[in-house]
């Protein structure tokens, strides 16, 4: 009934940010996890909290085994916020802390969040993380916080943003120059650090971007896409 108007829409229609994760390339090295921690001011959970299952990893490497030792085969799957087109976490938020941006991001407004945690329950991927305590960083990590990223306080939900600070930076540059953001101009920290280039990021509305081309690969699938969540991330996996 009501269309959302985006005043800052770029020439040629809005962006739709998306990612492709090639599971056949992923080695499970966890470089993306480390990069994400450094980029996004992710708090240090500590041993005790981590053992309670409260470690925060906006991107995590899920390990699955096939077969028994010694013939076990380990499989890795990086899981991060899928930035669903029809996100289950969004409508359940009573204060609009979780909402959908016009460029297809599943945004989390920390200031608004009151911490009812319904979004965390309703996320089928369990990629939402909660700040159970006031965040802290051991010395000297507190000296290297990223000034572009908010430090989240106690009692709010947080999750992967697709490094929205980088996206917005590139968008503003492009807007000033009166053009669209070029393919490859924006790379989230995890994509940037992936040594095997298993992760690719870009605009799905641009048919010539790497993401658009790769996601048409016949190896592609969406994680739990049968739920109708319309995830923005396409996984690639060869079926043996």
């Amino acid at each position: 009934m009501v269309e959302y108007r985006d005043q800052n829409a770029p020439p040629g229609g809005p962006y739709r940010w998306g990612m492709v994760i090639d599971l056949d390339r992923c080695t499970g090295c966890e470089a993306c996890v480390v990069a994400c921690h450094a980029e996004n001011n992710i708090r240090i959970s500590g041993e005790e909290e981590a053992s309670k299952g409260r470690a925060v990893n906006w991107i995590r490497i899920e390990r699955y085994w096939e077969g028994e030792y010694p013939n076990a085969q380990v499989k890795f799957m990086p899981v991060l916020c899928q930035h669903c087109g029809s996100a289950p976490c969004e409508p359940v938020c009573p204060v609009y802390a979780s909402y959908h941006t016009p460029d297809g991001l599943n945004a989390q407004v920390y200031n608004r969040c009151v911490g009812v945690r319904y979004c965390g329950n309703n996320c089928p991927y369990t990629v939402r993380y909660f700040n159970w305590f006031e965040p802290h960083w051991d010395e000297p990590l507190n000296e290297q916080l990223n000034p572009d990223v908010t430090v989240r306080s106690v009692g709010v939900m947080e999750k992967c943003t697709f490094c929205v600070q980088r996206i917005r930076g590139a968008q503003q540059t492009a807007q000033k120059e009166g053009r669209r953001v070029k393919d490859g101009e924006v790379t989230p920290a995890c994509v940037q650090s992936c040594p095997t280039e298993a992760l690719v990021f870009g605009d799905r509305n641009d048919p010539n971007s790497r993401v658009s081309r790769l996601s048409k690969d016949d190896r592609g699938f969406g994680l739990l896409e049968e739920l109708g969540t319309e995830p923005s991330i396409t996984y690639l996996k060869r079926i043996k």
Binding site: Y118, F130, W132, F133, V154
Partner: peptide
């Protein structure tokens, strides 16, 4: 101190 004083943790938020 924070809601972490409960036994909650992902995926059990309630």
């Amino acid at each position: 101190t924070g809601i972490g004083q409960s036994g909650l943790h992902p995926p059990i938020f309630w």
